[in-house]
Amino acid sequence: MTEFGDFAIAALICLGAFFLFVGSFGLAKLPDLMRRLHGPTKATTLGIGSMLIASMLYFMLKHDMVAIQELLITTFLFLTAPVTALMVAKTHILRDKKSRKKLPPTGRDIGWAVIDGPETED
């Protein structure tokens, strides 16, 4: 393996470890759910992504093998983490009436959460 390859793998592992630490620290220390949501969805996604890319690079340079499964895991992770964060945020808005009242108006007949419909008169 080349010196540049070793350096790139080590840099990606250190970068991934840093982002994983920041994401888990944010998850533990931020005060409420909406702020805690950024720890695992942003920083931890970058951390795991760079770890998986380092692993792909290692197997490509050391064993001359393309690790398709790690590429698929990375792609799946980057596609599903934002969707999961959106669903958790919308659920929080739907269930927490106190924080829903603090939100600015949407400019539409429906509210911020998916299930909110227009007000109907009974």
Rank of each mutant, 00 (worst) to 15 (best):
M1P: 09
E3R: 09
G5T: 02
F7N: 10
F7E: 08
F7L: 12
A8W: 12
I9R: 02
I9K: 04
I9H: 04
A10Q: 14
A11F: 13
A11I: 08
L12W: 12
I13A: 05
I13K: 04
L15E: 11
L15V: 14
G16M: 07
G16F: 05
S24P: 04
F25Y: 11
F25P: 00
F25I: 06
G26D: 11
G26F: 08
A28L: 05
L30A: 07
L33E: 03
M34H: 13
R35W: 00
L37C: 09
H38K: 00
G39S: 10
P40Y: 02
T41Y: 06
K42L: 03
A43L: 13
A43K: 04
T44M: 11
T45Q: 02
T45K: 02
T45S: 11
L46Q: 12
I48Y: 09
G49P: 08
G49V: 03
G49F: 06
S50M: 14
I53Q: 10
I53H: 10
A54N: 05
S55N: 13
S55I: 11
S55D: 12
S55H: 10
M56C: 15
L57V: 13
Y58D: 07
F59W: 15
F59H: 15
M60N: 14
M60Q: 15
M60T: 11
K62I: 12
H63M: 12
D64E: 12
V66L: 11
A67C: 15
I68M: 07
L71I: 11
I73Y: 09
I73P: 05
T75L: 13
T75P: 00
F76P: 01
L77G: 05
L77W: 09
F78N: 02
T80K: 03
P82Y: 08
T84D: 01
T84E: 00
A85I: 01
L86N: 07
M87V: 02
V88Q: 07
T91R: 05
T91F: 01
H92N: 01
I93F: 01
L94D: 10
L94I: 00
R95N: 13
R95I: 07
R95G: 06
S99N: 08
S99R: 05
K102S: 05
K102H: 10
L103E: 03
P105Y: 09
T106Y: 04
R108C: 10
D109S: 12
D109R: 13
I110Y: 06
I110L: 01
G111H: 09
G111L: 11
A113S: 14
I115M: 04
I115D: 04
I115P: 04
D116L: 00
G117Q: 10
P118V: 10
P118Q: 14
D122T: 13
